[in-house]
Structure formats: structure tokens, C-alpha cells
Design a protein around this nucleic acid. Structure first.
Length: 411
DNA sequence: TCTGGGGTCCTAGGACCC
DNA sequence: TCTGGGGTCCTAGGACCC
């Protein structure tokens, strides 16, 4: 038995925890660079604000309807996520953190699953301030479906269990495109063939599904029928690639500015790489112009190289990245984004037979010290101006992680 | 003027091996 | 004239997730 718990309108709910006066008000949270809407409170959804819509397109409505707008505050959301996961995981023998706001729980052997889920929900709300919805089913896909259905039909309870008895009745109410694993492309094809609901899909011919959707599709059908194919993954495996790519606050054309941004992004992926104890054996760097500007010349080059002696040492990574950038950068374009990807991550270094003798121990000691200083020193190539920095003009305080931004209570 | 970021898995096809 | 069988590795592209 699986349960899936997820935070309702997670980012918007995080904003409310430390600003309770926002309760009942329409809230939206914007993507990086204050670009698009990535989270909405129920009130904002009711006003017709669509997911993913660019902020500038709804500026009039924001003013007219008094919608509160926030830049994304990932420091806060990450910390709130940790708190939420701590409470959720305490309510089951095993769990899998699936995303920043979702967690699968092992509910096997729990005698009254719905009651236990309600308890879990109350506790999470009380201890963290985050409202959650919990779906329960015999497979992960069914738990996901139950969660979805609870949001639509059981908002006041926030809990729903699919059982062998009520399953078909509920699945008939779930549109096919809301099934976990069925995206835009597949749902369009399925609807064209008359498969409109999760129930239709659950009874669709498996051979045919296998042919058109591969093994992934067939697994979905089995799972909808109550046969578990996807297990709980309690330990999250190391990342196979780590990417950092961000739009600039304004378009850049000078190589030197882009170099500084890229050096910063590379240092960041390096940190993540070391955090999981890996080294990287290949790297990709790419540049993008603004695809929305049809009147501008477009240029989106990308280059990949192998790193003969896999490393996690930031200066080495940065040197490689800057070398790749210089290969693809051309003057005369307005660049909007630069990105770096670390690929071929492993946990062991194959030393280069023909390389000069370096001193890897000394390098890692330097890196250790720099990591310990947590951003108080920086590599020279990262620069100091950060003119390219992305916009975050309406970010709320980092209430839980910065001493200078703690909430103040007057009593 | 302004349009996000970061991942995974699967499949098909080509190149190559014995 | 006839032209096998079994396998691996890599890459690109598609589809999906949050």
C-alpha cells in the first residue's frame, strides 16, 4: 500500500507560513528572473491565472485583482521541504522523497489508512504550516491518481483511498491526461482512439499499449489495475548529470561578462558534484539567444568535451568550461542564457597515464578549505560585479535560514 | 521591454565486434 | 547464384516528470 503526500500549491503555501495575513489572498510565485508564473494559490487559480503564463502578460490583472506576486525563494522552499519531509517520514516505516513537495510513504500493514493519512495531514499542517493532500492506493500510479482525485473532489478532507471496491468508479472520473506518466503527446493519441479516462486506459489492450508507448506505457496499465511494478526507492541514487543554466537579468554580448556568469554556474555545479561525492568525466557548455525575439538573429551553439582525468576541483572545471565557451562564443549576438552541464559522473578517478604528475591531494585540500568557507571566498574568474545576475525583485525573506531575515514577533 | 530550470528513462538506428 | 547469428556501445530524439 502506497500513500502519496504533496504540499498544496507548495511555493505559495511556503510564502504564507511566515506571512499569515496572506491567507485567503490570491498569490502567485514567479520563476527565476521573475519570468513566468510557477505556483498559484487557490484564489489565484480561481481568478483564471494559468500555470506558466509570463508575468508581463498578466500585469494589468495583477493590479486590478490585487494579486500578491513573489519572486521564487528557493532557499525558503528547500528548507520548508526538509521540514515537511521530516514530519511525513516520521509517519511511515519507509518513504521516498519524490520531488521538492511530494513524498511516497509505505502504508503497508496500516489498518486504517485513511484515518492514518488524516492524522499525518493534521500533524504536517500543525508542525510546519504546510497543508498537504494524501492519496492512497495499492500502487504508486494509483496513489498518484488518488491524490489527484482528492484535490478535485475531496478538497475539504484532503485524503482519498482507492480500494479494489471503489477503484473503477474513481478512475472513471480521472481524465487520461491527468494520469501520472501520460503527458501531452500520449494523451492526444489516446483520446483520438477513444481512451478518455484512466479507467478506459486500465482496460486497454496491453499489447497495443506496448507497441505504441513501450514498456513504460504497459507498466502504467498494470499499475492502474493494481499490480505494482514501481517500488519505493528509499535511497535516492546519485545524479547522472548536473546542469546549471540560467537566463541573464538582461541580454549580454560581451564575452567577459558571459565568462563570469559561466564561472559562477560552474562553481555551483562543482559544489553539487562534490556534495554527492562524484567526479565528472565530461562537460557540456551551451549558449542561447532569445528565441522569443523573432527580429533578432538566433545562435544556440553547444559543445561537449571529455575530461581525461575526471575531477571535481572547481578551478579545473572552470578552466574547462571557459575554454569551451571561447570555442562557441561569437561577437554580434545578444545572448540570453549560458549553461554548463557535468556529464559522465562517477565515483572513481581513472588517472591519465600520460598526464604530467600533478598533486591531486593538494588540490583537494584547497577545495576543502574553499568549500568550508561557504561562499566567503571566490575564484577570480567569477568576477565581482554580477551585472548578469537574474532578477528577483519581489523575493520574500529567507525566514528560516538567514539570521538577518528572521521573522520578528512583537508581543 | 518583459517569456524558467533541472532532471530521468526508453527506443531506434548506426557502427562495430566476433 | 547463394549471403548468419548474436551481441555491445553510442547517439539523437522523444516523452515524461517536478
Amino acid at each position: 500500500m502506497f500513500a502519496l503526500a504533496d504540499g498544496n500549491n507548495f511555493y505559495a503555501s511556503c510564502e504564507r507560513v511566515f506571512q499569515p495575513k496572506l491567507e485567503g489572498q490570491p498569490i502567485v510565485v514567479l520563476s527565476n528572473n521573475d519570468g513566468c508564473v510557477v505556483a498559484r494559490s487557490e484564489e489565484a487559480k480561481a481568478l483564471g491565472i494559468a500555470m506558466g503564463v509570463p508575468e508581463f502578460q498578466i500585469r494589468d490583472q495583477i493590479r486590478k485583482d490585487g494579486i500578491r506576486v513573489f519572486s521564487s525563494n528557493y532557499t525558503l522552499y528547500g528548507d520548508m521541504s526538509n521540514r515537511m519531509m521530516t514530519v511525513l517520514s516520521s509517519m511511515a516505516p519507509a518513504h521516498e522523497i519524490y520531488s521538492i513537495d511530494e513524498c511516497f510513504l509505505d502504508f503497508t500493514g496500516i489498518s486504517e489508512p485513511e484515518k492514518h493519512a488524516s492524522l499525518t495531514r493534521d500533524k504536517t499542517k500543525q508542525w510546519t504550516g504546510i497543508p498537504v493532500t494524501i492519496g492512497i492506493g495499492e500502487t504508486k500510479v494509483l496513489a498518484k491518481a488518488a491524490n489527484r482525485l482528492a484535490k478535485i473532489h475531496r478538497r475539504e478532507f484532503g485524503v482519498l483511498q482507492l480500494t479494489a471496491e471503489n477503484r473503477e468508479q474513481w478512475l472513471a472520473q480521472l481524465p487520461i491526461d491527468k494520469v501520472w506518466g501520460i503527458g501531452r503527446a500520449h494523451s492526444a493519441r489516446l483520446i483520438a482512439r477513444g481512451i478518455k479516462t484512466a479507467l478506459d486506459f486500465a482496460f486497454h489492450d496491453k499489447g497495443e499499449v506496448r507497441k505504441s508507448m513501450g514498456v513504460v506505457g504497459e507498466r502504467m496499465v498494470w499499475e492502474l489495475q493494481g499490480v505494482s511494478c514501481l517500488g519505493l526507492e528509499e535511497i535516492q541514487p546519485n545524479k547522472k548529470q548536473i546542469i546549471c543554466a540560467k537566463s541573464f537579468g538582461h541580454p549580454l554580448c560581451k564575452l567577459s561578462e558571459i565568462e563570469e556568469a559561466l564561472a559562477c554556474y560552474t562553481d555551483r555545479v562543482g559544489e553539487k558534484l562534490r556534495a554527492q561525492g562524484s567526479v565528472c568525466g565530461a562537460m557540456q557548455v551551451f549558449l542561447e539567444t532569445n528565441a522569443h525575439r523573432k527580429d533578432h538573429r538566433q545562435y544556440c551553439p553547444q559543445v561537449t568535451t571529455t575530461i581525461p582525468e575526471a575531477t571535481s576541483y572547481s578551478p579545473a572545471l572552470i578552466a574547462t568550461a571557459l575554454g569551451l565557451l571561447r570555442k562557441i562564443w561569437k561577437p554580434g549576438f545578444l545572448y540570453k542564457k549560458v549553461g554548463v552541464g557535468l556529464l559522465e559522473l562517477t565515483e572513481t578517478v581513472q588517472t591519465d597515464l600520460f598526464a604530467h604528475v600533478a598533486n591531486p591531494v593538494a588540490k583537494s585540500r584547497i577545495q576543502e578549505v574553499v568549500d568550508k568557507l561557504e561562499g566567503r571566498v571566490r575564484w577570480g574568474s567569477m568576477g565581482f560585479d554580477e551585472d548578469w545576475k537574474l532578477k528577483a525583485e519581489r523575493r520574500s525573506n529567507r525566514w528560516t535560514t538567514e539570521l538577518t531575515e528572521l521573522p520578528i514577533v512583537r508581543a
